[in-house]
């Protein structure tokens, strides 16, 4: 199982450090050719407008959309969620692979960034918590019928899943709790060619 980490801009090194500690083989993805090699992919935090610009330059956007539609497991964090969202406010282009609406910087500017407990609900209804590092986080304002919400902050969905895509509006890569990354690794192993 080779896990890709999109390394155009953002905190891709923090994701790589998590994969290293989980002893998962990984590769940085900067071109369409590198994308073809991986069995799972992480879209890191960073600035979505910068990443989008660099993806278009590479022809990566179209290839990524193809692969995700083909079932490639993905973990998207923060800006990564914006890249995949169906609708974004204020409007900006995206891949439209997740049936959600997202509002950028909805919790405010950096002075409102914070660490908060995210409430997790599993498919059996058991509850648990995970530490959420929210940095200029986007807010998910609508989830489509195929979207499962399994983490909330107050009433807002912050950790969701749709098919093979896991999306967090916070940064599990900036904590020592690697449960979300393990989930992706499990999916990737199942998907491995």
């Amino acid at each position: 199982m080779l896990c890709g980490v999109l390394a155009l801009q953002g905190d891709w090194a923090a994701h790589a450090a998590v994969l290293r500690s989980l002893e998962v083989e990984f590769a940085y993805v900067r071109t369409a050719r590198e994308l073809d090699e991986v069995d799972a992919l992480i879209l890191p935090g960073g600035e979505s407008t910068a990443m989008l610009r660099l993806m278009e330059e590479e022809g990566l956007a179209a290839r990524l959309a193809d692969r995700v539609r083909g079932g490639l497991p993905v973990l998207a964090t923060c800006a990564g969620v914006i890249l995949l969202a169906g609708n974004i406010h204020p409007p900006q282009p995206s891949l439209g692979l997740l049936d959600i609406d997202v509002e950028r910087n909805a919790y405010g500017r950096q002075v409102h960034s914070r660490v908060a407990a995210v409430e997790l609900v599993d498919e059996l209804g058991a509850t648990d918590e995970i530490e959420g590092v929210f940095i200029r986080a986007p807010k998910i304002t609508r989830t489509g019928a195929d979207v499962i919400v399994f983490g909330r902050l107050d009433a807002d969905p912050v950790l969701i899943r749709q098919g093979g895509i896991i999306a967090a509006t916070f940064h599990p890569e900036l904590t020592d709790d690697h449960r979300i990354h393990r989930l992706l690794v499990g999916e990737g192993a199942g998907h491995g060619r």
Binding site: L8, Q9, W12, A14, S113, R114, A116, V133, F134
Partner: peptide, 22 residues
Amino acid sequence: MGNGEDRFRVKVGLAEMLKGGV
């Protein structure tokens, strides 16, 4: 806003997000 340590983590967190950027 939580304790001082969390406050510093989110500050450094934004710096992390700017990596690989201009």
